[in-house]
Simulated assay, not measured.
Amino acid sequence: MSVEPTHEDADVPALVPELSVRDLDASLEFWCCLIGFTIRYTRREEGFAYLALGRAHVMLDTLSIERSWLTGSPEPPLGRGINLEIWVPDLEVVLGRLASSGWPLFLEPEEVWYRADDVLLGVRQFLVQDPDGYLLRLQTDLGRRPA
């Protein structure tokens, strides 16, 4: 049985986004079955789930169950203006699951080298939207090289 982690636990990040969702089951199908997250714990009566994939953590909270902390009208797509960068160990596995399910990509896979001062950080990445329109930028590391 999973136990709710405390902030003293070493594997709990200092920042965990909580995303409002319309249908928890549809969101769990996407986040867990397609992307590869696992459920750390749920509060089904509240429409809530805490998920993790390696060091990437996210909370899903169903709109209109219990309380909501909305700053505006929840019109789709939700999460406009942000993308969630998530490191995955094997991008091809995730791409395969998405393709098998017929899930559309927002941006096809690409190789990009981002400058960080005098070093270039390489990633292979793609973007996909979850059922509520949140934009996920899934990446895998390609290494470093001089800028």
Rank of each mutant, 00 (worst) to 15 (best):
L105M: 13
R55K: 15
D61G: 07
R145A: 10
E45M: 05
S27E: 06
L28M: 08
L53T: 12
L78K: 05
S64L: 09
L136I: 04
G122K: 04
P146G: 09
D117W: 04
P104D: 11
L15H: 06
R55Q: 15
R115A: 09
D9E: 15
D11N: 15
L142M: 06
W113A: 02
Q125G: 02
V3K: 14
M59H: 05
E46S: 04
L135M: 09
S2D: 08
P76N: 11
W87A: 11
H7N: 14
D25E: 15
E110T: 08
E108W: 03
A52S: 14
D25M: 11
L121D: 03
L95S: 05
T62H: 10
Q139H: 02
V123E: 07
F106K: 09
P13R: 11
S100A: 14
S64A: 13
L53H: 13
G143H: 08
L98T: 07
L91T: 06
S100P: 04
D25L: 11
E92Q: 15
L127F: 14
L70Q: 12
V16I: 15
L24D: 05
A99G: 10
D117A: 06
R22L: 08
V93H: 02
V58E: 00
A10I: 14
L78A: 07
E85M: 08
V12D: 04
R22N: 07
Y114K: 03
D132Y: 00
D141V: 02
A52G: 10
A99S: 15
R144Q: 14
R145V: 11
D11V: 14
T6W: 11
R137W: 00
L84A: 02
P5I: 13
P104N: 12
P109L: 03
G102K: 09
E92C: 11
D23L: 08
L142C: 04
V21W: 04
G143A: 07
S101A: 15
R44D: 11
L60F: 00
L136F: 09
H57W: 15
T38L: 10
T38V: 13
V16C: 03
A14K: 14
Y114L: 02
P131T: 02
S27D: 08
L84G: 01
E108N: 10
Y134K: 00
